[in-house]
């Protein structure tokens, strides 16, 4: 090799990236060319130092953190891991020491305490009350309405009991007269009561009032030959429909509604 070494041939020569023949030619040339020897010497020492270079190990914790973070970023979590992650996030408010979560826990405890106190100590009798209606359903009903309806049920119960206790064929004309008067009065109130009890929106109440009205009509018409039922039949109707019991229960419920209002 007579030509001088090109700059881009120096590194392959030093690192052994050239064939044996080319290497021999370069070495032959170097023996005679001082310029090329200097060129090689300009970098040979650095080449040797770098060839022997061993970098120190990275801090174990740092490399582990790097590796773990990459795994988290580039791995699709399995369903189990997803569930675990969700559970972990749910328990954060319970275990975190951050002030926001502490305050939240304190408020939750106070709220639970208040609710427990209300359930255990305030108006325990209310728990036993039977309230058939949502309070909203009787919004608008007044105390006087309730009294009117309540009185109607009381008088209806009296009339029904009177009929129930009359023996067939032995009715006292004075009692019959009283019953007829009472039935007439109740009939006159009946339409008004029907309107008032609309607040309750209860089908069984309407059925009760309808059955009561049939009896009232029959009793009030006894001297007009417009009777559909005999006393015996009336008694059976009252018994089968349990009208007395209904009248009594409605009185109780009206009392409860009155207390609530």
């Amino acid at each position: 090799m007579t030509e001088c070494i090109k700059t881009d041939e120096i590194i392959p020569y030093l690192t052994g990236e050239i064939g044996p023949e080319q290497k021999r030619n370069i070495e032959k040339h170097l023996r005679t060319c001082e310029t090329c020897q200097k060129l090689i010497q300009q970098c040979r020492h650095a080449h040797i130092i770098l060839t022997q270079y061993r970098r120190d190990e990275p801090p174990t914790e740092l490399y582990s953190a790097y590796s773990d973070e990459l795994r988290t970023i580039f791995t699709t979590p399995s369903r189990r891991k997803k569930i675990k992650a969700v559970l972990a996030s749910v328990t954060i408010p319970l275990t975190s020491t951050k002030p926001v979560f502490r305050l939240g826990r304190a408020l939750a405890f106070v709220l639970i305490g208040v609710l427990l106190g209300r359930v255990l100590f305030l108006n325990p009798e209310k728990e036993e009350m039977f309230l058939p209606y949502d309070v909203q359903s009787y919004t608008g009903i007044t105390e006087s309405d309730l009294e009117l309806i309540s009185t109607f049920f009381v008088r209806s119960e009296l009339l029904l009991l009177s009929i129930q206790n009359t023996s067939p064929g032995q009715a006292d004309p004075a009692d019959l007269q009283l019953n007829q008067t009472l039935a007439n009065e109740l009939l006159q109130q009946s339409t008004q009561i029907h309107r008032k009890v609309n607040y309750f929106k209860d089908e069984s109440l309407f059925i009760f009032l309808d059955q009561l009205e049939v009896i009232l009509l029959d009793i009030s018409n006894r001297d007009k030959a417009e009777i559909r039922y005999t006393f015996q039949n009336l008694k059976k109707l009252i018994k089968d429909a349990q009208l007395v019991r209904h009248a009594q229960e409605w009185q109780k419920q009206l009392q409860q509604v009155s207390n609530t209002i």
């Binding site: 700059t7 300009q42 650095a46």
Partner: peptide, 13 residues
């Protein structure tokens, strides 16, 4: 690339 390496070595040295 080879020239970059050579010059880099030269400067390092």
């Amino acid at each position: 690339a080879r020239i970059h390496i050579f010059r880099g070595l030269k400067n390092l040295q």
